[in-house]
């Protein structure tokens, strides 16, 4: 009820102000830039940190894994934000067309060291629905099967340490955005551990990704 009263009062107040100024209704100043404060983390954390390529109107965030030597076969997450303030930015896909909602960090490979042997496919997916961004990069590890067929595993289809950038996402400032803090809510994050298939629970693991703070100014 109190909210309704305020809403009703606002047009009246605006009308008064307009008459006083002898001008159109003033608008709140639009935000001009995004600032992102990296989260505080430990070496075993997954985190979203600001990429140096960021600009005031395009914030690039890097998903970086733990630096404790743990190896994985891929990771992904679902993020929600206020899409009336910012929108998800695109990256070039493997053909160079700006269709993807993620950039590849290059941790997972689809060729071996010689560049000619295919290892298992590097699977990448990103997409948006409403205010949610879904993104992930995984290695379709198949070294066991290749090994069975030809007697030796193919280098490159191995689990990888993820202490460098696994993938990138981007947030772009809307022209109508207004200053303030924008929520970045990580709804779900999963990774495939190296020892999958031998661990007891045999599941993808939840990874608590530390997320920083996004302010519009």
């Amino acid at each position: 009820m109190k909210r309704l009263s305020l809403l009703l009062a606002f047009p009246v107040l605006a009308l008064v102000l307009g008459c006083t100024a002898g001008n159109s209704t003033p608008q709140a100043p639009a935000a001009q830039a995004m600032t992102y404060t990296d989260p505080v983390t430990t070496p075993s954390d997954w985190k979203l940190v600001k990429d140096p390529s960021s600009t005031p109107t395009r914030l690039v965030l890097d998903l970086v894994g733990p630096s404790d030597g743990t190896r994985y076969r891929g990771a992904g997450f679902t993020l929600r934000t206020d899409t009336t303030q910012v929108h998800y930015g695109r990256f070039p896909d493997y053909l160079g067309n700006p269709t993807a909602y993620h950039g590849d960090g290059g941790v997972f490979l689809d060729r071996d060291a010689t560049g000619s042997w295919d290892v298992a496919p590097r699977l990448q997916a990103s997409g948006i629905k409403g205010d949610r961004l879904m993104v992930g990069i995984f290695q379709d590890t198949d070294d066991q099967a290749w090994s069975l067929a030809w007697g030796s595993p193919i280098d490159g289809a191995k689990a990888r340490t993820c202490s460098t950038v696994v993938l990138r996402i981007a947030l772009e400032l809307d022209a109508s955005a207004h200053p303030g803090t924008v929520a970045l809510e990580l709804l779900k994050a999963r990774a495939i551990p190296e020892n999958v298939g031998t661990v007891v629970d045999r599941k993808m693991v939840a990874i608590p990704v530390k997320v920083g703070v996004l302010d519009l100014k």
Partner: peptide, 24 residues
Amino acid sequence: CDSDTETDACDLGALALANGGVNV
């Protein structure tokens, strides 16, 4: 693929994991 009633990119990971020959 992970039966959490949503389709998202992590399901692709679950699928990749299954495709690795371990049938998790």
